[in-house]
C-alpha cells in the first residue's frame, strides 16, 4: 500500500508542484491550503508524512507542528517543514517543536523527493 503524504501550503503554485512531485514518486497525496485544513485532514487517518509550510494565515506551520506533536496518535506522522525564511533560529525552533526536517525554499525537487523517500523508507 502506498504511503500517504499531506502537502500544506497557502501558495497554490507551490502546492501544485509538490502534489505533482509526490504523486510522481508514488505516494498518495492529500492537500491542505491552511493550518486549519491540515489539522482537519489529520483527523481519522493521519498521513505518514507532512510537507508543512511555515508562513500561512490563521495557524502558521509552527503552531500546526506543535499541535500535532501534542497528540500521541499523530506521533508517527513525519513532518518536513518548508520555509522561505532561512534563518537559523527559525530552523532550530521548528526542530525543537518536533519537526523531523527543515527545508528552505526554493528547494531542489530531486533532493526533496529523495528525502521524503528516505524518511518513509521506500527507497
Amino acid at each position: 500500500m502506498a504511503k500517504r503524504v499531506l502537502v500544506v501550503d497557502d501558495e497554490p503554485n507551490i502546492v501544485l508542484s509538490l502534489e505533482f512531485l509526490m504523486r510522481r514518486a508514488g505516494f498518495d497525496v492529500q492537500v491542505a491550503r491552511s493550518g486549519g485544513e491540515a489539522l482537519k485532514a489529520l483527523e481519522g487517518d493521519p498521513p505518514d508524512l507532512m510537507l508543512l509550510d511555515v508562513m500561512m494565515p490563521e495557524f502558521d506551520g509552527y503552531e500546526v507542528c506543535e499541535r500535532i506533536r501534542a497528540k500521541p496518535e499523530w506521533r508517527d506522522t513525519k513532518i518536513i517543514m518548508l520555509t522561505a525564511r532561512g534563518r537559523e533560529a527559525e530552523r532550530e525552533r521548528g526542530l525543537a517543536l518536533g519537526a523531523d526536517a527543515y527545508v528552505t525554499k526554493p528547494f531542489s525537487t530531486r533532493e526533496l523527493v529523495e528525502q521524503v523517500k528516505r524518511m518513509l523508507e521506500v527507497a
Partner: peptide, 12 residues
Amino acid sequence: HELRTPLTSIRS
C-alpha cells in the same frame, strides 16, 4: 521570504 516564494515555484 517574498522573493523566495515565487522563486520556489519557478524552480520547482
